[in-house]
Nucleic acid binder design. Structure first.
Length: 590
DNA sequence: AGTACCATGAATTCTAAC
DNA sequence: GTTAGAATTCATGGTACT
């Protein structure tokens, strides 16, 4: 099958040609935060020496997050090292109680371990962030009092922080408690309940009571005729979030129907601009919840089959203008035959597919393609309908294409790259396995689709943008902006997978980027202090992009399709937490 | 009724180092 | 040849839409 792919090299994306720069001397060893010249921000020597000396990797991990060695030791002693989440929770609580007694001080390095504690980001001069801003200091002090109260009431610090950030400094304790209650309802309680009640709580996500909460407790504007609609069951939400057919969002380049105006909720209006992505076909209520957290912005549901030859139904929530969008050129081929001309020769007339289904993280096995070959080859002409049906079903299920007589095959990784709008070999090399390439690609953006939405930024930021990229994966947003010709000034890229970070780093160097790429591995470590340090360094973010994990939302998941409160997908709340922090902090940089 | 779905985990096979 | 670890194969429903 590999031989049949050679003809694909004729496709004419030209954006590889500018990417032939020599790889400069670069040290990619740091898994934490790395400067473009390869120096870890921590001062890599110090950080690594402490790692060698420390008897506990976990201890070091938390110390590097800014907690004092003494405090971390104590907590580890108490709870063991296994459950890092629990440890973090405890540390945050201690920190909250400590800081509320001296609200103006930021995390203080432990004098006993000043060589590393809390110093990870000291290269960013941040000593005067708050010093001449009494207003902010006052607000933060008040927030700390509130925070302490909430923590004392038994709420998790993270949840309390989110509530304070979301409702603002003037929110009463009662409002905050209510907010946390509802957030917990969406996130935590579900898992504790038996299946039957679980359903009720999922329904609760769009219930009248919930909506009343939104408009009254959160102080959001009631829509006209609200009282009537509240009596009217779920019509409003159901209508608002109904998947469009055709799934073209506010418009795609290849269809004539466009929406050119929309009214954003006031809280959502940027800058900073944000762009959130996840699977469109999530369990019921999920998009309602996501939309509610993201300032009530209506999701834009788009199927990438209008941009390329493969379907990819996704929902996007963003506060970007939607006028004067333009697509990347050349427009990618939008049928299987155009994308893979060599398959045409072998394509049976009874395989009526013209588009591929969604590119996923796994591929069909060699055994399966062999079974199909045997099933088809015993017939001189078209196989009987039952065989056709079986083969077509498997081809649809596994996205198989015809690469020889009676021979089907899954797409090669480079073909998937091309379909998704990435440079060929984007995920190749660097020790990544074939399986992992499929996995990384299957979790990625479709670049042309995202670029179309982001294209409006080009005339707004002719000198480039500062990008915060959460759950970066293989850098779909970065590639999209680059292909749009939008200079990337400073990019903070947060991605858990090391191979993915390496892919983005390699791409960054090969494309001769002039800006700076900082990478981190865990969104949960990106707190207000670190954001403040980053934003003060280069003056805030213009765009916050993120597609949070879909594992617990995706239809393919048989095991743990638990909704937004699932293990991975609940990281959406970190996207919101960070976005809200950046939004609140951005006033200073405008 | 038919269709699609950014998946997970156990079992199995493959690979490379010894 | 043994073996540990990595890569691959396979079985696994259910939801929410057309």
């Amino acid at each position: 099958m590999g031989g049949d792919d050679s003809g694909l090299e004729s496709d004419n994306f030209d954006w590889n040609t500018e990417d032939e720069l020599e790889i400069q001397n670069y040290n990619s060893s740091s898994s934490c935060l790395t400067l473009p010249n390869g120096d870890a921000v921590t001062g890599s020597g110090e950080a690594s020496s402490s790692a060698v000396l420390a008897n506990s990797k976990v201890l070091d991990h938390f110390v590097s997050m800014g907690f004092s060695r003494e405090m971390v030791s104590k907590v580890i002693q108490e709870y063991g090292e296994e459950n890092e989440d629990k440890l973090l929770e405890e540390l945050l609580t201690y920190k909250a109680l400590e800081s509320s007694s001296r609200p103006l001080q930021r995390i203080e390095p432990d004098p006993c371990s000043s060589e590393n504690a809390g110093s990870s980001w000291d290269d960013f001069s941040d000593t005067d962030i708050f010093s001449d801003d009494e207003e902010i200091a006052k607000t933060m002090s008040e927030n700390d009092d509130t925070l302490r109260s909430l923590v004392k009431m038994g709420y998790k610090q993270v949840e309390a922080l989110i509530a304070i950030e979301r409702l603002g400094p003037n929110a009463s304790l009662e409002e905050l408690v209510d907010f946390i209650g509802v957030a917990q309802m969406a996130k935590a309680e579900d898992a504790l309940l038996p299946p039957q009640e679980k359903l009720q709580y999922n329904d609760y996500a769009k219930s009248n009571k919930r909506r009343l909460y939104d408009y009254e407790v959160l102080g959001r504007k009631k829509p006209r005729g609200c009282e009537k609609k509240i009596l009217n069951e779920d019509d409003e939400d159901a209508e608002a979030l109904h998947l469009p057919n055709p799934m073209i969002g506010f418009g795609v380049p290849t269809e004539s129907s466009f929406i050119t105006h929309r009214r954003l909720p006031e809280d959502a209006i940027g800058p900073p601009y944000f762009y959130y992505e996840n699977v469109a076909l999530a369990p019921k209520g999920v998009w309602q919840t996501i939309s509610r957290f993201l300032y009530d912005v209506e999701p834009e549901f788009v199927d990438s089959k209008f941009f390329c030859a493969a379907a990819r139904k996704r929902g996007y929530i963003h506060n970007l203008p939607i006028q004067n969008r333009f697509p990347l050129l050349p427009l990618p081929p939008r049928t299987i035959h155009e994308a893979f001309p060599l398959t045409k020769k072998w394509w049976p007339s009874w395989d009526i597919r013209t588009k591929l289904n969604c590119l996923q993280t796994c591929i069909g096995s060699a055994k399966l393609t062999e079974r199909i070959r045997k099933a088809v080859e015993i017939y001189d002409e078209d196989p009987p309908e039952s065989v056709q049906k079986y083969v077509l079903h498997q081809c649809r299920k596994w996205n198989l294409v015809w690469v020889g007589r009676n021979k089907v095959a899954p797409l090669e990784p480079d073909e998937v790259e091309t379909l998704l709008g990435f440079p060929r070999n984007h995920t190749r090399g660097g020790g990544i396995s074939r399986t992992d390439r499929y996995k990384s690609l299957g979790n990625s953006f479709q670049v042309d689709t995202v670029a179309y939405h982001l294209s409006v930024l080009k005339e707004m930021y002719p000198n480039g943008i500062n990008l915060l990229s959460l759950f970066s994966g293989i850098g779909g947003a970065e590639v999209a902006l680059h292909r749009l010709g939008i200079p990337l000034k400073n990019v903070v890229s947060v991605e858990k997978s090391e191979v993915n970070r390496n892919i983005v780093r390699s791409w960054w160097e090969q494309t001769n980027q002039k800006g700076n790429l900082y990478d981190m591995d865990d969104v949960r470590e990106l707190d207000g202090d670190r954001l403040e340090q980053l934003m003060s360094t280069f003056g805030g973010f213009d765009l916050i992009v993120g597609g949070s994990p879909c594992n617990n939302l995706a239809g393919s998941n048989r095991v743990s399709r638990d909704g937004l409160e699932g293990k991975e997908s609940s990281l959406f709340f970190d996207y919101f937490r960070i976005l809200d922090l950046v939004k609140n902090m951005s006033a200073k940089y405008r």
